[in-house]
Design a protein around this nucleic acid. Structure first.
Lengths: 342, 342
DNA sequence: TTGTAGGCGTTATCAG
DNA sequence: CTGATAACGCCTACAA
């Protein structure tokens, strides 16, 4: 084996042209003769010449690399987002460096620094549920453009790609009300989560619209957002003899946990209690009855996140510096998928 | 903002030392005076100096970047693998560029080329279910070290990280036989999948060990490996009045589909028919009854894949060329998780 | 202990 | 139409 990669210099020596001629010939530069171009391109192909990416990056001061930080890869929704990013970035000639923060703010900080250190043109960031201090993000933003997606914060002046959580939750709640449900439980999500808050607001607005009183007993709070927690909270409500005829949970997992609890107590779904989740993850069609859920366009979030980041990169490249664009918030539409559970 | 990144030259101008002194001071080179080091390191910190990664890559001809190609990100198992890779590569100071081939061999080829073009030190590859022609992989291998993981091929002379599919399937089948099941269905997976083949072999060996005859009617074949397919195939068997008392499916999704079909026909699980899946994905604890499944150590696969690739990189770096190491196959242990369905 | 010089591979400018 | 030269930022052998 033992082969060093082919360089322009190699081609130039083989063909007797100067390196710059070779470079231009390969780029179809207009003032190189067709004959030369042919020769060069042929040899390049034959030797399988591949331009050195590091050298190009160094020269153009752009790496064609985008960093992605995601709190938890182990979710259908995350995979969909990443998928959208992969496809769009590929289309645009960028590659993706992906990291997982595990909802740990220290890791998040570290990864942000690492990405910048290792050379990316921009970063797509979804915050951890525990990110309270945002200094490290503001600092990173000085060094390289950041676009927030899914888990965002209003305190960070960056473009944000999110779904209309509030409207999605409003519609889901209204859907339950329209069925005549009056005692609708809302299982709340992580304390500091922007999305969880918005969903709660949507729930409240729907109740208000239909003049249903808010009952604090019907609003339990998750410690961790998972199946077990949904089961636990519903079990608690049942043993406290709290009455309710519907459950709207902040995520599908929590809703699935709720269904499990209801079934254990022989409560008939949806006749006695209807259940709705949020995200439209794969589990919705595994659990029985199939779970009604608010679909979030994860794939599109990924696409849009790349698109908006690239817009900023182009702008920054033109003006040759990072600029404080007024941060836009892009809200994508959710869509209620009705299934057996409601 | 308008700030170019700080370079060694900037520091050198500010402090009046030459660039090389700065460079060495930052690296704690032994023959720089402590005083100089202090000054330099202080200023570097103050100005938030970050070495240019492209320049370093160019100089050292290594990018500290590993490419990962995965056929389908949208699986729990995939996420686990990627997670392991992320954590291990981070620990080793490498970053991960991730792509998804969508089980499309053309895309796979393209991504392989793209990765090499965009500069990675090595590649972790999991084949598509449809990869028949392997020329593009052999070609890529000439340019950069490749380690195969999960979906591998024996024809490709690369290190392989896999699980003991055959043993896992053998144990799962034996588990069913030990319960007195005699007519055990095996739902086969993708035609050209190495893993699917091995699982089938494990099933066959278990039957043989216990002198149970192989019945072709009990071995349907999936077109696509998904929930719907499991349901479809089981429905077909039932309507053909084929008798069976257990089902072992090539993946959890297929097993979940099978359970759905059985429940629709009021067949009691596991009393009348026991069901076992493969992968231990999240759905196993959502479906009711919870699905017995062969757990695959996805996270560890990720870790090992990085470890072995880095070993090869180090070797290649030492000897300054790619070398034909005899390809090892690393087999990780699976583990049967017994649940309600069997 | 510090500085000089050259090169990694590519590209842009300028000259011929 | 082609070639020489310098520069991107970093590193390191060699000099001083």
């Amino acid at each position: 084996m033992g082969k060093r990669n082919i360089t322009l210099k190699d081609l130039s020596e083989r063909l007797g042209f100067s390196v710059s001629t070779i470079s231009r010939a390969l780029k179809d530069h207009h003032d190189i003769s067709q004959e030369t171009k042919d020769k060069v391109q042929q040899l390049a192909k034959k030797l399988n010449y591949i331009p050195n990416h590091s050298a190009q990056s160094l020269k153009n001061s752009q790496t064609k690399t985008i960093g992605v930080i995601i709190p938890n890869l182990l979710l259908d929704f995350s995979s969909k987002i990443i998928n959208g990013m992969i496809h769009q970035s590929r289309k645009e000639g960028y590659r993706l460096v992906i990291s997982e923060s595990g909802h740990n703010p220290d890791l998040e900080k570290d990864m942000l620094e690492n990405m910048i250190r290792s050379g990316v043109d921009g970063i797509l960031l979804s915050l951890t549920n525990n990110t309270k201090n945002i200094d490290h993000i503001l600092l990173a933003k000085e060094k390289c453009p950041i676009v927030l997606y899914d888990k965002v914060s209003e305190k960070i002046p960056c473009t944000r790609i999110i779904v209309d959580n509030e409207i999605g939750a409003y519609n889901a709640t209204k859907h339950l009300i329209d069925q005549g449900r009056k005692k609708i439980v809302f299982i709340k999500g992580a304390e500091h989560s922007f999305n969880a808050k918005k969903r709660f607001e949507g729930y409240l607005r729907a109740l208000k619209d239909r003049q249903i009183k808010v009952d604090k007993n019907l609003i339990p709070q998750c410690d961790t957002v998972c199946i077990q927690e949904g089961t636990k909270l519903v079990n608690q409500m049942i043993s406290k003899r709290i009455e309710f005829d519907a459950i709207f949970a902040v995520t599908d997992d929590v809703a699935i946990g709720a269904i499990k609890a209801l079934k254990k107590h022989n409560i008939i779904i949806p006749k006695q209690v209807a259940v709705v989740g949020f995200s439209n993850s794969k589990g919705t069609t595994i659990i029985e009855p199939n779970l009604t859920s608010v679909d979030q366009p994860g794939y599109t979030i990924g696409i849009k996140a790349i698109e908006y980041l690239l817009k900023e990169l182009k702008l920054a490249h033109q003006t040759e510096h990072l600029l404080r664009t007024t941060p836009k918030t892009i809200e994508l539409k959710t869509n209620l998928i009705k299934r057996e559970s409601s």
